[in-house]
Design a protein around this nucleic acid. Structure first.
Lengths: 254, 254
DNA sequence: GATGAAGGTCGACAATGCCGACCATCACCC
DNA sequence: GGGTGATGGTCGGCATTGTCGACCTTCATC
C-alpha cells in the first residue's frame, strides 16, 4: 500500500504504546520503544499534546493519553449505526434475560464492545464499552469467528491462549466448535474466558446479509446454565434480539 | 510554539471534522472543508483508515470515525487517576442521593464527563461518558469556572449562549454567580441548561490543592429542588463526595 | 452518450519533518 | 560540592517526505 504518511503512522504507534503499556511513559521510553530519535518523538508528542490526544503530567514530564480521545470515541458511538439500532433491543434483552447484554464488533484481533446494558438487578457494575474481548473464548468472539471470514482469518493467525482450564486451545477442536456454532446459529462460552462466567451470543446481519456484529448475554454460570448447558430460554432471547436488530438494519426476515 | 507537525495537525482536524459535523463525509467534503488538495486529504484519510481511526463505508466511499478511537478512549479512562479514585464515592453518591451522579473535568471549552453513575431507580438511561457539557450553564461547569482559572479563561472568552430562558447570559451577572459559587463552595443549575432539569456540583482538589474536576448530581427539578432551591440534603451529599474524592487524591483534610 | 461530480492515482518539486549533536535540569552519590 | 548519568527539551542542516494539481475511472443523471 503506497503512500502512507510516516508521521501519522508513528503518531498512531505512540498512542497505541501509551494505551497498551504502562500508565505513563517518559519521552525517552517512547523514543526507545519505537526506535525513534528523541527529537522526533518529542515533536510527535508535542503536536499530539497540542491537539489534546496526549497529556503531560507537569511535575514528572511523563506522557499519557489525552481527553480528546474520549470525546472522539464517544462521537464514534454516536455515528455507529449498528449500535443505534441495537440500543432498544439490547435493553429488552437485558430485561427479559435478567443478565448483562453486550453488543460487539470485530476490531483488529478481538471483539470490541460497543454497547453494554447492565444486569437489571443493580449492584456495582463496570461499564465495558470500548473494552476488547478475545475472539476464541467468548460467545461474541466465537460467533464472529464462525460467521465473519475476516474474523476467522484473525483467529486463525493468532494463538488460542488458555485463559481458564476450559478454554479450547487446539486448532482442530476449535474449528469443530465453530462448525457447531454455524450449524446451530449461536455460540456459547462456558467458563472458557473467566471462571464462573458463561455467555451466549448470536450474529447480527446487515441489509446485504453480511455479519456485522454479535449480541449476547453474560452472567454467572449458576444463573445462566442448567445441567444441559446454557438455558434454552436465554438462547431464544438472544437469538430473538439478534434477529430483531438484523431486521432493523434491513436484513429482512429469516 | 515552534515545530508542530503539519500532517498531524491536519489529521487531527480531519478527525474533529468527522466527529463534529455530519455523520459521514466524502473525500471532497473533507478536502474542501479544510482547504486541502484532494490528494493530500486522501493520503491522510488512507493512513487514518489503515490505523483504524477512520472507517470507510465500502458502498458509498464516505468516511466516518473508526473503532480504534473508542478503544483508545477507553484506555484513557483506565489511566485517569481522578476517575479511578472517584468510582466508589460517586457510586455512594448516586445511591444516597437517588439521582444520577457525574464526574467532569475541564476539556477545551467545556466539561468532559469522565464518569456517570445511573440513577438507582433504573429505567432507560443513556451513558454520557465522553460527552461534553457547557461551562456556563451546568453545575459542573460553574464549579470549574469558579475554582479553576483556566476554565474561567475559557468561559470568559466564549459567549454565554441562552440554552433555556433561565440561562444566565450577562457577563456581569455570570461573574456574580461565580462569586456566589466560590463563597458557598458549590454550584447549581436550575433549569439553565435543560428545561425541567436541575443539578448541584462541588469541586475536587488534588494533593497540591489545585481544582482538577467536579462531582455532582443531576435530576428532574421536582425531585432535586424544594421551594428554596436545591435540597440541602443533596448539597451536603455532593460536598461530602467531593471532599472524599479530594482526600483520596491526597488533598488532606479541609 | 455526453456531462459532471464522485473517489482515487501519479509524479515532480520543495517544503517538511527527521536526525543527532547539543543544552538545561534534576537526583543521586561518592 | 561537584561529578555523573539520568531526564526532558532545543536547534539547524540535510534529504526524505508529504504536498499539490493534473489526470484517470467510475457512476448517476440528464
Amino acid at each position: 500500500m503506497p503512500g502512507s504518511i510516516q508521521s501519522l503512522e508513528r503518531a498512531a504507534a505512540v498512542l497505541r504504546l501509551l494505551a497498551g503499556g504502562e500508565r505513563r511513559l517518559g519521552l525517552s521510553d517512547v523514543a526507545s520503544s519505537l526506535g525513534l530519535a528523541k527529537g522526533t518523538a518529542h515533536g510527535i508528542l508535542r503536536t499530539l499534546q497540542q491537539e489534546g490526544f496526549v497529556e503531560q503530567e507537569p511535575v514528572s514530564g511523563k506522557y499519557q493519553l489525552g481527553a480528546e480521545l474520549l470525546r472522539l470515541g464517544n462521537s464514534y458511538l454516536d455515528v455507529h449505526e449498528l449500535r443505534a439500532r441495537a440500543l432498544v433491543w439490547t435493553d429488552d434483552l437485558a430485561r427479559s434475560s435478567g443478565e448483562a447484554a453486550y453488543l460487539g464488533v470485530l476490531h483488529q484481533h478481538g471483539v470490541l464492545i460497543v454497547h453494554h446494558v447492565f444486569r437489571p438487578d443493580d449492584g456495582r457494575q463496570v461499564l465495558e464499552v470500548g473494552a476488547m474481548q478475545p475472539l476464541h473464548s467468548t460467545a461474541l468472539g466465537k460467533v464472529l469467528s464462525a460467521f465473519d471470514p475476516v474474523a476467522h482469518n484473525e483467529v486463525a493467525e493468532g494463538e488460542l491462549a488458555a485463559l481458564t482450564d476450559r478454554t479450547v486451545t487446539g486448532t482442530a477442536e476449535f474449528e469443530s466448535v465453530l462448525d457447531l456454532t454455524r450449524s446451530r446459529g449461536w455460540g456459547s462460552d462456558l467458563e472458557e474466558t473467566w471462571v464462573g462466567v458463561a455467555s451466549v451470543a448470536a450474529p447480527v446481519y446487515d441489509r446485504r446479509r453480511m455479519p456485522v456484529g454479535a449480541v449476547g448475554v453474560t452472567g454467572a454460570v449458576e444463573r445462566v446454565c442448567d445441567p444441559d448447558g446454557i438455558q434454552s430460554r436465554l438462547v431464544a432471547a438472544v437469538r430473538d434480539c439478534a434477529r430483531a436488530v438484523s431486521r432493523d438494519l434491513g436484513a429482512g426476515r429469516f
